[in-house]
Amino acid sequence: MAKHKIIMNNVSAQIADKAILNNISLRVDDQEHIGIIGPSGSGKSSLIRTINGLLPISSGTIEIDSQTITASQPSADCSKIGMVFQDYALFPHLTVLENLTLSPTLRNENSTRDIKDRAFSLLDKVKMNGFGNRFPASLSGGQQQRIAIARCLMTEPEILLLDEPTSALDPEMIHEVKSVLEGLMQSQLSIIIVSHDISFIKTTTNRVIFMDEGKKLSDQATDLFFTQPENERQISFIQQLDH
C-alpha cells in the first residue's frame, strides 16, 4: 500500500474571522496526482496554501512526512514543497538563472557549481535553454511560467502545489506550459493541481477533489468523478462544464 505523503485532519482556516476552509480532511499518497476543482472563491487556493504554510490554519492538523502543522505550530520547513502560482511571481530584478539559483544558494546546500548545473538542466527540461541571462519582463507569460516551474523544482521538492498554472495564459502559451506539466506528471512527485482545465485534469490526475464554499464536497477517483458524480452541486458543476 502506498504511504501517505500528506494527511490533513479536520483543517479549518479563517482570514479576518471569515471562515475560508471548513473541516477539510484529505490524504495524499506518495506519487499521487490530485486535481482540485470548484467555482472561484471556493477555497481551492486556500487549501493548497495551508500545506506550505502560506495560510495559517485555525484548527486541525496537517502531517507532511514527519512534520506536523497545527494552529499553534506553523510550518517550519517547506523545502520539500514546491509551489507554482497563477501569476508566475518571478523576481523581476533577477535574471532567469538568478531566479533559479537564489533559493538553493541562500540555503547553502550545494556548491555554486552544482546549483548552476542543476539550473541549466532544469532550463533544458522546461525548454528554456539559452534564456538564463534574460530578465522575466522580457519573456512571454508562458515562458515565465515555465521558468517558475523550473524554479520550484530547484530545491528538489517531493510535493508540488500548482495553483491554476495556466489560467493567466492565452491558448498558445497554455499549450507549451501544459506540455512541460505533462512531463512533470510522469515523475515521482506528489502533485496537487488546481485547474479549470478539465481535459488536463482528466488526463493527468488520479483523483479529483471538488470544493465549494470552503468545504470538500467530493473526493473521487478521476474517472468516477465525471461519470458517477456524488452530489447535486457536483452534477450541476459538471453540467456547466459541458456547455
Partner: peptide
C-alpha cells in the same frame, strides 16, 4: 506575490530583505 513566492521558496528575514526587497 513576490512575498509569497519568497516564502514558498524558504527565503525569509535578512536574506529576503537583502536579495528580494532591498534591490527592488
Amino acid at each position: 506575490h513576490q512575498h509569497e513566492s519568497a516564502k514558498a521558496l524558504g527565503i525569509s528575514g535578512w536574506k529576503k530583505y537583502r536579495h528580494i526587497d532591498l534591490p527592488q
